[in-house]
């Protein structure tokens, strides 16, 4: 089937079998290999992408279901080649990762959280990342990274991004 996707603000027309999951489509058809597959049954969160700004499992969605949505993958988070977003930079600052396999999902989850809740509590952060399994860090430095990013975003002069469907 032919599907018209909107990934990272670019239109992409792909030919996929109906059974192709969004994560396989992103990786195999579009070459966006920053989205990882860990379990392919919706538990680990390694395949997290943003759909209309909200985190979803790309392994729990078929590519043919994805037309018409704005999809964001980790490749679109850095503002420029070699330049990190505030969230990405905070992950580097606190070493909120080790092997890097769950990291794209964690970063996207954090980006979405901080757009919804600019000043999250520890419980908010834990709840947001609880859908993403990390086997390396024990989550401590990930929580620190997101809290640090929130602090830096609050002090930055970046325009607040508007969450789709939410009042600005």
């Amino acid at each position: 089937m032919k599907v018209e996707l909107n990934v990272n603000n670019a239109r992409a027309s792909v030919e996929v079998e109906p059974r192709t999951t969004l994560v396989d489509c992103l990786r195999d058809n579009l070459g966006l290999t920053g989205t990882h597959t860990g379990c392919e049954h919706g538990i680990c969160g390694a395949c997290t992408v943003l759909l209309e700004g909200e985190p979803v499992r790309a392994c729990l969605m078929l590519a043919v279901q994805a037309d018409g949505y704005a999809i964001t993958t980790i490749e679109a988070v850095a503002p420029a080649p070699g330049e990190l977003s505030i969230v990405q930079d905070a992950f580097c600052e606190t070493h909120g990762l080790q092997c890097g396999f769950c990291t794209p999902g964690m970063v996207l989850t954090a980006e979405a959280l901080l757009r919804r809740i600019p000043d999250p509590t520890r419980a908010d952060i834990v709840s947001a990342i609880s859908a993403n399994i990390c086997r390396c860090t024990g989550y401590g430095q990930i929580v620190e990274a997101i809290a640090l990013a929130a602090k830096r975003l609050a002090g930055s002069n970046l325009p607040r991004q508007v969450v789709p469907g939410e009042p600005a």
Partner: peptide
């Protein structure tokens, strides 16, 4: 900082 982290936070690891 841990130098490896940069590529991973950008999804640019090579697995």
């Amino acid at each position: 900082r841990v130098r490896e982290d940069r590529r991973f936070v950008a999804g640019r690891g090579r697995f």
